[in-house]
Design a protein around this nucleic acid. Structure first.
Length: 266
DNA sequence: CCAATGCAAAATCGTCGGCT
DNA sequence: AGCCGACGATTTTGCATTGG
């Protein structure tokens, strides 16, 4: 900082007001799931249309999921891949300032040859002071917006969990079911667990489930852009409410580690 | 230039009423 | 009865204005 011509005291820094804050958590995957797999899952959620989930950034194709608007961003990415990119050029990575982390990367990379594991990272970037304020009010976090006070594991966890739950609550159990399930057994499950639904509705939801296996909700919405949006909207609501036998949620790995985790980065 | 404020635009979702 | 469009309440985003 001195090199940049900025002089200040530690105390002043601690109390400095903050306009942008990033909360993040590294998630270690040892059970064979890959970041790529999780990102695919994330892409398949039905996010609000107002948010730009254009994560198919070709530079990172399949290595990052970004949920973006002007005031904030929620990003998931393959940390090892990002560090590998950073090694080539800092312009290629999601995180711009991880030069310091390259040493760590070398170590981890060596370790990886012995024991296979993946590093997945979740980041919430609150880019506007107004957004920080609004979110903190909502989550009942009563803290002045200064460097020192924002830098708290408990807050980090709360924020990350909030956005993760936001994401997960939009996920329909229907969409978690295996693609290899036969038409017949899928249909049977849908009928048995949802006796209140009409035959028509069930067949509609069945079609939606199959379509969803090869396309994202966003693509689907785009295709019906010229129809009245309400019907598709209702179908998606029903999909979320559809009762299906409990299924292991592939994203729970993330949730578990966020709950117990405590890493913070500014 | 940055932050706060207010407002418009857009989106979500419950509900109502007409149509078949 | 169920499907579908319309309406409206509410929330969220984006932008311009104001005031430092």
């Amino acid at each position: 900082m001195l090199q940049m011509g900025v002089q200040t005291t530690i105390e002043a820094l601690k109390k400095a007001p903050v306009a942008t804050v990033h909360y993040a958590k590294n998630i270690v995957l040892t059970d064979g799931t890959t970041p790529h797999y999780l990102i695919n899952k994330l892409q398949k959620m039905c996010m609000p249309q107002s948010l730009d989930t254009n994560q198919t950034d070709f530079r990172n194709g399949g290595h990052a999921f970004k949920w973006h608007c002007n005031a904030y961003e929620v990003v998931f990415y393959d940390k090892m891949h990002d560090l590998a990119q950073a090694k080539k050029s800092s312009k290629r990575s999601i995180e711009k300032d991880n030069n310091i982390q390259l040493q760590l990367f070398e170590q981890l990379d060596k370790k990886r040859t012995k024991q296979k594991f993946e590093l997945f990272r979740m980041e919430v970037r609150l880019n506007k002071r107004a957004k920080i304020k609004q979110l903190f009010t909502k989550l009942n976090i009563k803290v002045p917006l200064t460097f020192q006070k924002l830098f708290k594991p408990a807050i980090s966890r709360k924020i990350l969990l909030y956005y993760f739950d936001e994401l997960q609550s939009r996920h329909a159990p229907l969409f978690e079911l295996s693609t290899s399930m036969t038409d017949k057994s899928l249909l049977t499950q849908m009928i048995v667990h949802n006796p209140h639904l009409s035959a028509n509705r069930i067949i509609q939801l069945f079609g939606l489930k199959r379509l969803h296996e090869t396309m994202t909700i966003q693509e689907l919405q785009q295709m019906f852009a010229h129809h009245n949006k309400r019907s598709l909207q209702r179908l998606l609501i029903d999909a979320r409410r559809l009762v299906m036998p409990a299924q292991a949620d592939s994203l729970d790995v993330i949730r578990k580690q966020v709950v117990k985790g405590k890493a913070v980065r500014m």
